[in-house]
Design a protein around this nucleic acid. Structure first.
Length: 792
RNA sequence: GGGCGUAUAGCUCAGCCGGCUAGAGCGCCGCCCUGAUAAGGCGGAGGUCCCUGGUUCGAGUCCAGGUACGCCCA
């Protein structure tokens, strides 16, 4: 408390420092607790409500910040929730001297009709003139603005209609526990917390557009007639005796009837309309006009299996569904709920939103990238698990989908149609081919159908996407690649037909499995393949109709990996794939099981022979891999020694199947022995460390010669393409090659002629008129010439 | 100010109940292959798992505190 020339200033102790200038001439006369003033009256700054009972007294409240302003704050019960509560507790009535357009009413005589924001300056001026203003400051704080027009809003007390949510809040909390949320934390986090703190829901809005609230009241406020709420058109027609065709304003407001209890008074509809969220929450039943119609349908479709929306709907749609579901049916209105996250600008600074206009039109993305690409991109992204995603429609992410997912599917389809049309083949859907590669891809298709179904049932869409991508890779880069010869009849007509049938069957099934994720491309492929109606009209494929053979799938995938490893070894040693090598050995547990698949490795890696052996010691060294989960709890601190021994190799295998690592003996089920390739050998371990691949890198003159022959074939094929030849054109081939390679070409002349469709292979410079190419072969120059043989 | 999330490679993200040398795709670089060809395959480099402390034989993972960002609320 300060005093200057007989005037006393009272302010919070924490705010004194801010009024240094104003208090310059004043002296501190006393320090008292704020509570000292509680209950004391004061003279209002403005006289308008001076007669209001109980008003203009000092009240205590814990939400006032004693560091802000003067530590004293003015209450306006009609314009703030805290204010209203405190005033109500102290018997002060709510007064609202502001009209619906934000202007002071007649009660505020000096500024009646003035917009409250426009009145700020003159009011400050007025206070100054009265000497009531000590200091004028501007505070910056969050202020509510209209979401649509961005105009500042004011809080103002209004009568409103409520749903008494607090009455059944506990039921909602209980029902929520039974809902499966994606991501899981929403249940007890954002949504659970929101439900626990649920307040009564104001469902009325003071505007023209909207669903009119179906309540009629007497226009005489003293009337004893209770408000009437109508539940159907039939009830309205019965009560008002007229046909009701339009439930909207203004027509509905013309429905009036005399107040039965007060002569001259009229029952009129209340002016409010419903909060539009009330309608969103009514979706489950309102969409089918239940209970007036479709009772049977509703009873079989409620609660819904799943809904999906933006994560912030925890206080919007998810919530209003929950309120009405609980209030009306006492159950959760949906069983599963996917909350997707939001898209952010590429720099992550702001969300993409209507307000900001900071995104390109989806139509534009559809036109440039395709809606399938966009859909897949979203489905495979963290946004489906409630996370945020930085999104740039122009960046590579969407293009990657086209390149890595859409193109491969289309390529497989294109490959099929290209050769099926050339050969005039019609394929049938069948899953019974006995060809090895067919059985592999059919068994893998079965796993695809099962796994995608499991992942989708689990709402793991990103997992389903990954499953499909991996399958397409195996289809294109293994099945088709390794089966190519069969498609042009290298293995006979029967094998050719089963290749077409199998690829057809697999593609049809892939389309069905992928249809929910890529609805357009799968439909195009499906209809192109089958000539049937849309893939979206078919049932989910029956996994059971495909062969079950996990072992074959596992073995084949192991072989694929062995090939990758072998190709890596080739690169490491600078041995191009066209150069045949004598042999490749796969040494590992159960390696001999791969016997039936050997020929595939042979052609993929271009080796003359593939050997399989379980003789591990000869080709690999063992690495001890203790089971840490098992041993950790058992050994405690001794675990460190075991790991050290594992690293240093200080362990021995005992005859009884145990292993001694450092001081510790490990039981057979407490460790695994993994393989590592021996140093100095041209070998490498597979990823699972259960086998090693050993490549014979000894290049004999014979192998080198064959490699040159294949190089030559490749170069001639390239030349054919450059010369725009048809794939079936026969040619005369001139080869002008240095001495180092000539013998090799002679040895393999027949092979070369066959491969490049040459009726004749002549050595020497190309003739005039030939298509010529200057290139190299082996260590020297190569000149090629080719001419189409006139078809006879 | 409160609640709920998120932070891992240049980028976008996986990484379960704590356990092996932290993974994928893209991008970059190199190599290869090609009867799907303005495709395709193989490899390499690239990491302070946001920071600090704690629990533990062992932490990207659990706990506490902090920082930054997002959503929701006030």
């Amino acid at each position: 408390m300060y005093e200057e020339n007989g005037t006393r200033y009272v302010l919070g102790a924490g705010t004194v420092a801010k009024y240094k200038k104003e208090l310059e001439g004043a002296t501190l006369v006393d320090t008292v607790k704020g509570s000292t003033f509680v209950g004391r009256t004061y003279e209002p700054l403005f006289p308008y409500f001076a007669d209001q009972p109980n008003a203009f007294r000092v009240l205590g409240a814990d939400f006032v910040d004693t560091e802000e302003g003067t530590g004293v704050v003015h209450m306006a019960p009609g314009f703030g929730e805290d204010d209203q509560i405190i005033c109500e507790e102290n018997g002060i009535d709510v007064v609202v001297p502001v009209d619906d357009s934000g202007r002071f009413t007649e009660a505020v005589t000096d500024w009646a009709g003035v917009n409250v924001f426009d009145a700020n300056k003159p009011i400050i001026q007025h206070l100054k003139e009265q000497g009531a203003l000590v200091k004028h400051e501007t505070y910056e704080h969050n202020y509510p603005h209209c979401w649509r027009t961005d105009e500042p809003l004011i809080y103002k007390a209004l009568g409103s209609w409520y749903v008494r949510v607090t009455d059944f809040r506990d039921r909602m909390v209980a029902h929520n526990q039974k809902i499966r949320w994606i991501p899981e934390h929403i249940r007890d986090g954002q949504f659970g917390k929101w439900l626990e703190g649920a307040r009564d829901w104001s469902i009325s809005r003071n505007r023209f557009w909207g669903t009119p609230i179906p309540v009629w009241k007497s226009d005489d406020p003293e009337s004893p007639t209770p408000p009437e709420c109508y539940g159907s058109i039939a009830e309205l027609e019965e009560a008002f005796g007229v046909e009701v065709k339009d439930l909207h304003r203004p027509a509905i407001d013309e429905l009036t009837r005399p107040d039965p209890n007060v002569p001259g008074a009229t029952m009129r509809r209340v002016p409010e309309v419903l909060d539009c969220w009330f309608e969103s929450g009514s979706m489950p039943f309102a969409q089918v006009h239940y209970p007036f119609e479709n009772k049977d349908w509703f009873e079989h479709h409620f609660p819904g299996d799943f809904i999906v929306e933006y994560v912030a709907q925890t206080r919007g749609w998810f919530y209003t569904l929950m309120v009405l579901g609980t209030a009306l049916f006492d159950c959760a209105p949906f069983r599963n709920c996917i909350c997707h996250g939001i898209l952010l600008e590429p720099d992550g600074k702001r969300k993409l939103g209507k307000r900001y206009g900071n995104y390109s039109s989806p139509d534009e993305v559809f036109d440039t990238r395709g809606s399938d690409a966009l859909r897949w991109y979203m489905m495979a992204s963290p946004i489906m698990r409630g996370g945020d995603l930085r999104f740039d429609s122009s960046d590579a992410g969407l293009g990657d989908v086209t390149r890595l997912v859409l193109n491969p599917i289309w390529n497989a389809y294109y490959f099929f149609t290209l050769y099926a049309n050339i050969d005039g083949v019609r394929a049938t859907f069948r899953t019974d081919s006995d060809q090895l590669l067919d059985r592999y891809i059919l068994a893998k298709t079965r796993e695809l159908v099962e796994n995608v179904a499991t992942e989708m049932d689990d709402y793991d869409l990103a997992g389903a996407c990954a499953e499909i991508t991996a399958f397409i890779d195996a289809l294109n880069n293994w099945y088709i690649r390794r089966s190519r010869g069969r498609f042009w009849g290298e293995s006979g007509a029967e094998a050719e037909q089963s290749a077409y049938d199998t690829l057809y069957t697999v593609l049809v099934t892939v389309c069905q499995v992928t249809a929910p994720l890529l609805p357009l491309i799968t439909d195009a492929v499906y209809m192109g393949l089958t000539g049937d109606d849309s893939v979206h009209l078919t049932d989910w494929p029956d996994a059971e109709s495909f062969p079950l053979d996990h072992e074959l799938v596992a073995d084949m995938d192991r072989v694929r990996e062995a090939c990758s490893t072998a190709l890596a070894l080739r690169e490491e040693h600078g041995l191009r794939t066209r150069l045949p090598l004598a042999s490749l050995m796969i040494a590992g547990h159960d390696a001999t099981r791969l016997e039936p698949l050997k020929h595939l490795v042979q052609s993929e890696v271009n080796v003359k022979a593939v050997e399989l052996t379980e003789d591990l010691e000869a080709h690999a060294t063992f690495v001890l891999s203790p089971d840490r989960r098992k041993l950790g709890p058992k050994l405690g601190a001794a675990m460190k020694d075991v790991i050290a021994a594992t690293r240093s190799g200080a362990w021995t295998k005992n005859d009884d199947g145990t292993v001694t690592a450092g001081e510790v003996t490990l039981q057979p089920d407490e460790y695994e022995l993994k393989l590592e390739s021996k140093e100095g050998e041209t070998s490498a371990a597979l990823k699972g460390n259960d086998a090693v691949v050993v490549l014979d890198v000894d290049v004999t003159p014979e192998l080198e010669a064959e490699g040159w022959a294949r190089d030559l074939v490749r170069k001639v094929q390239q030349a054919r393409k450059e010369a725009d030849l048809n794939v079936t054109d026969r040619i005369v081939l001139a080869v002008d090659v240095h001495e180092g390679c000539r013998a090799a070409i002679e040895t393999h002349a027949a092979y070369i002629r066959e491969q490049v469709l040459a009726t004749e292979l002549v050595f020497g410079a190309p003739e005039d008129g030939m298509h010529t190419v200057e290139t190299t072969l082996g260590a020297g120059a190569l000149g090629l010439g080719l001419r189409v043989v006139t078809s006879s």
